[in-house]
Design a protein around this nucleic acid. Structure first.
Lengths: 221, 221
DNA sequence: AGTACATAACTGACTGGTCAGTTATTTGAA
DNA sequence: TTCAAATAACTGACCAGTCAGTTATGTACT
């Protein structure tokens, strides 16, 4: 009808392979803003420049959109993290430092941070989501870290700890830092400060909280 | 259960001060089971032995039920944790150990664990909930722990770390352990094992992950 | 080049069901 | 007899998913 000048906006695009990604982008924006339950499929459609019906040409249900979203965001990160740590032989503290810093960088991007938030939030009503995340990410990443720790112990870099449980000691503080900032808005006085957090955390993680002088080695129970 | 003979179950109870608590109990059960959004007010009423309308005699809205629930569960715990740690002067590692074990015990109770889960889940659609939790719990508990750490440093028990950030190093691993078990069903081979986790965590927290021999003190960056 | 048919891409009104909150009415304790 | 306590039927709004119809694009034939 009206194409004013040179450029025309095509209304249909045949072979529209880009569409699913556009829908996913729009959905992520809205899920971040209002959460899964509170965003209507029609809103997603609108933002993607489509009608509601068209969305259902690409995704069978609203949940499928969420699942697609998570899968798209997750898989590349998991493989990246894996490549850093796999087949590494040396001081595991170097890899742990690297991986944590990489993780922190990722978590600075709101669009990536949104994914774990969505998972945590929607799990009760959508268990397959957690199952997928576990299958695609955790079941791949955790064994690698575990092996890293085990090697570190065998080679005398680390004290003999439980490798499986120690994963929580490595990652937990970072997660809690993010969660506190996100959920309760609790940050250090100088802002999010994730780099300072990681430095502080690594110091404690590797060398312990106890003062070296006068403090006997700690024994639990 | 049902009494056939002498005693009769009064159908109305005037001045029913017990009612709000009964509604809260019922609501908690259902929120644990299906989450906030998916439980209907009528279900809550039914389980409390009331009609839907009656619930609205005691609570102005569904959200008010959630808020009441959280407040009722939270406040006693916060004060209890506080009394353990306040005005303590001595090796802070003892208190930290105690508080973590107490925390772990609490988190074993599904009805208590449900509260933070509900908060995390419902924050996006109900920010006052997070604000309340922060006001009533975190803003009271965190400064106490921070002071504990500061004292520990001053008295030579602990190395000089950032007290505010170190809170995450203390609590984070426990939280992550719980979260992993709850959300993804990931536990050690021998079950939830929170006690073993805490032992492993405290060892690392106080004495560090590094092997004492041959390993130079860790310096970040 | 123009015309006709084919089909992929898309639309938006509609349906069926759900559910928070309201209200007219009933119950029973005092 | 009175009235707070409780009920059950009702209202209004919402929204995921459907589908009959529309529009843009491709193709084949002349």
């Amino acid at each position: 009808m009206e194409q004013r000048r040179a450029i025309r906006i095509p209304k249909f695009r045949r072979r529209a392979e880009a569409r699913p990604d556009e829908v996913l982008d729009a959905a992520l924006d809205l899920f971040i803003e209002k959460g899964f339950a509170a965003t209507r499929v029609e809103d997603i459609a609108r933002r993607a420049g489509l009608s509601k019906g068209a969305v259902y040409l690409y995704f069978p249900s609203k949940e499928a959109i969420l699942e697609g979203l998570v899968r798209r965001a997750i898989v590349p990160i998991a493989t990246q993290a894996l490549s850093s740590a796999e087949n590494y032989e040396g001081d595991p503290r170097l890899v742990i430092t690297m991986v944590l810093k990489m993780l922190a960088a990722k978590l600075n991007d709101p669009r990536l941070l949104a994914i774990p938030k969505l998972i945590v939030r929607e799990v009760p009503g959508f268990p397959e989501l957690a199952a997928m995340y576990r299958r695609e990410v955790l079941d791949k990443v955790m064994p690698v870290i575990e092996k890293l720790i085990r090697n570190g112990i065998d080679q005398g870099y680390l004290r003999p700890v439980d490798p499986h449980l120690t994963i929580r000691s490595i990652v937990g503080p970072v997660m809690l830092h993010v969660a506190m900032a996100e959920i309760f808005g609790i940050t250090p006085p100088d802002g999010f400060a994730i780099d300072r957090l990681i430095d502080n955390h690594l110091t404690i993680l590797f060398d312990g909280l106890s003062a070296p002088d006068g403090a006997k080695r700690w024994t639990s129970s």
